[in-house]
């Protein structure tokens, strides 16, 4: 809480309006919100099935996969960014193929930002959802099976509604982590205003030159994210 207070006290309130309307601030904010949201969607699409596999099935190496899921948590994000470059970069294992086959390149693109953020934020979603799945009574799924529902129908109509609060909490965590992502993003996606320069990158570079500008940017990121998280909490978690 104290560092927060420090930001508020030190903020250049007189010049705030003109700093807020400085070019680039809005673009960075919009890019941040967009990429964090897309990254959350990616995490949901990949992470929920992964969590289901981890919680509801047994397969060889499951413990290893679970450990692997948490790797982005312990890995310094910059290292994560380098790892992503080694895979999806121009010379990367998958990157070369993507480029040759589809003409797709991820580094230095907005899509690259989404990939970097999703990589770092994924564990938050998977761990939340897996926990929710383990907490949910699997016998409801058995009941659905006896009623003739296949795995997919059971998952969609029974499991997912039962774990909805856990999925929502995981998605919120995931979104918040993606919004604040810096290291993997700047390493993998680089820094280009309007395309890959998210708010945390803008803050870092502003810090090189103008502390006041950095503080203003930080405040903007803070206020927006707190407002959105508070709004989501009331709607999702409050109702559950």
């Amino acid at each position: 809480m104290l560092p927060l207070l420090g930001l508020l006290i030190r903020a250049p309130w007189q010049t705030l309006p003109q700093r807020l309307t400085a070019p680039g601030v809005l673009a960075a904010l919009r890019l941040s919100l967009l990429t964090a949201t897309l990254a959350t969607v990616v995490c949901l699409l990949l992470g929920v099935p992964l969590a289901w596999l981890l919680a509801r099935t047994t397969f060889p190496g499951r413990g290893f996969v679970r450990a692997l899921v948490t790797v982005p948590l312990v890995l310094p994000p910059v290292v994560g960014g380098v790892a992503l470059l080694l895979v999806f970069g121009r010379r990367g294992l998958a990157g070369e193929w993507l480029d040759a086959t589809f003409g797709l390149t991820l580094p230095f693109t907005t899509a690259g930002v989404v990939v970097a953020e999703a990589f770092v934020a994924m564990p938050f979603l998977v761990i939340s959802v897996e926990g929710a799945l383990r907490g949910a009574d699997a016998r409801y799924e058995e009941a659905a099976a006896t009623l003739g529902a296949g795995r997919w129908t059971t998952f969609r109509r029974v499991t997912l509604p039962l774990i909805a609060p856990g999925v929502a909490a995981g998605a919120v965590l995931c979104w918040a982590r993606a919004l604040g992502e810096f290291g993997a993003t700047i390493t993998f996606a680089g820094n280009f205003p309007g395309r890959t320069q998210t708010m945390p990158l803008a803050v870092y570079l502003a810090l090189e030159q103008d502390l006041d500008a950095a503080i203003v940017l930080s405040l903007v990121l803070l206020v927006v994210s707190v407002a959105i998280l508070a709004g989501l909490r009331d709607r999702w978690l409050g109702a559950a």
Binding site: D137, R139, A143, T146, L147, G148, P161, L162
Partner: peptide
Amino acid sequence: PEHRRIGVVFQDYLLFPHLSALENVAF
């Protein structure tokens, strides 16, 4: 189980908590 056409009434019923009585039966 989903291909057996065997109906089960479980001990604590296991009615789907998020569905109404009608939706449970229609499931």
